[in-house]
């Protein structure tokens, strides 16, 4: 499965469009991580625990989107976008969407 955030897949021709595919996941912060982040918050800088958490979560959102594209018979998702929103205190939704297509 090819993913790209451009309007075409560079070097390939689009044969068919299958419409919008989406994938999302809602993650809550781990309490232990939150405590560590609280300490880290005193000196500032990167919160590695959160970075990992979100990378992992985004990967899952992408996987769900890819699975949906796969079930449609697509072999690429183009113009992929991401959004992140806090749905509740301490929980964030990571959302990925794009257009499923079949390319050469």
């Amino acid at each position: 499965m090819i993913l790209s955030n451009t309007e075409t897949v560079p070097g390939r021709t689009i044969l068919e469009f299958y419409g919008v595919v989406t994938g999302s996941t809602v993650r809550a912060k781990h309490i232990g991580r939150d405590i560590m982040a609280g300490f880290k918050n005193i000196v500032g800088g990167e919160l590695k625990g959160y970075t990992e958490l979100l990378v992992e979560a985004r990967q899952e959102a992408i996987q769900r989107m890819v699975a949906q594209a796969h079930s449609m018979g697509a072999n690429a998702v183009i113009n992929v976008r991401f959004t992140t929103s806090s749905v509740a205190q301490g929980a964030a939704e990571l959302f990925a969407y794009g257009t499923a297509v079949k390319v050469q």
Partner: peptide
């Protein structure tokens, strides 16, 4: 990606 926070100061 990077997650950052603001320090106390």
């Amino acid at each position: 990606s990077v997650v950052v926070s603001v320090d106390y100061f």
